[in-house]
């Protein structure tokens, strides 16, 4: 669950939003380039700080200007999938996912997981995303769709409490995009993972959203 009320001064205008995402809900935020969509996701994930407001993730206040709370991205457990994937280029696909498994495990248990447990959890994510055959490949050897699947597998491997997707499918061709939509819908089945997807693709919003918000020049205009 996410509850966010925040303002942040952007170069050209003020981001001023208030939103909530229920457990298991997929909220799609739509808007033109530069509307403030990415800034909003960065504020929720802790990659940027709002000027004012409150952000609550799963009953935990992760940011509050009033109470001077500012949890680090590491403490927020907000998974983030970047448009450009941000995969670690010097690691294989398996190492990318294992890194996330280890980091997520340490965050939850404050101990180092056993290698066997890391390998098993990584394998589970590979199979869930249908990329087990790519485990030894480096990111540069993968297609755009495979890279996005790997980025999704990596984000999920850290077992986040919410998942933020920043236009992850915008650079993919139509066929691959539809495949990714199917994967996201399957992922959602039977989980209470709150998901926020930023996109400017109207069809994508219609296919994946439980609820759609329009954002324009930092302001939420309509909740359809």
């Amino acid at each position: 669950m996410i509850q966010a009320t925040c303002t942040r001064q952007l170069p050209e205008y003020m981001l001023d939003v208030s939103l909530s995402v229920a457990p298991g809900e997929t909220l799609v935020i739509q808007g033109e380039s530069g509307a403030g969509k990415t800034s909003l996701l960065e504020c929720i994930a802790g990659l940027a700080a709002p000027d004012c407001g409150t952000i609550i993730i799963n009953q935990v206040t992760v940011w509050s200007s009033q109470d001077r709370i500012n949890l680090s991205p590491q403490e927020r457990a907000a998974g983030f999938v970047f448009q450009d994937t941000a995969l670690f280029p010097h690691m294989s696909a398996r190492e990318n996912v294992s890194f996330a498994v280890t980091a997520g495990y340490r965050r939850r248990h404050e101990t180092v997981p056993q290698k066997k447990a890391v390998a098993a959890l990584a394998q589970q994510e590979f199979e869930r995303l249908g990329i087990a055959h790519l485990a030894h490949a480096r990111p540069r050897m993968l297609s755009g769709g495979e890279r996005q699947r790997l980025a999704l597998a990596r984000a999920l491997a850290a077992q986040p409490s919410v998942l933020l997707l920043d236009e992850p499918f915008s650079a993919l061709d139509r066929k691959t995009r539809e495949e990714m939509w199917r994967i996201v819908r399957e992922l959602k089945t039977g989980t209470r993972l709150s998901l926020v997807l930023v996109t400017h693709d109207h069809e994508e919003a219609q296919v994946l959203a439980d609820r759609i918000l329009q954002i324009d020049r930092g302001l939420i205009h309509d909740d359809a």
Partner: peptide, 27 residues
Amino acid sequence: VDPHCIAAARTLGASERRIFWKITVPL
């Protein structure tokens, strides 16, 4: 070093020290 790689590692929950040695220095 790609700042998105560092940001991604942070959102995964990796400590700053681990990010430095496993991501920043190799890249």
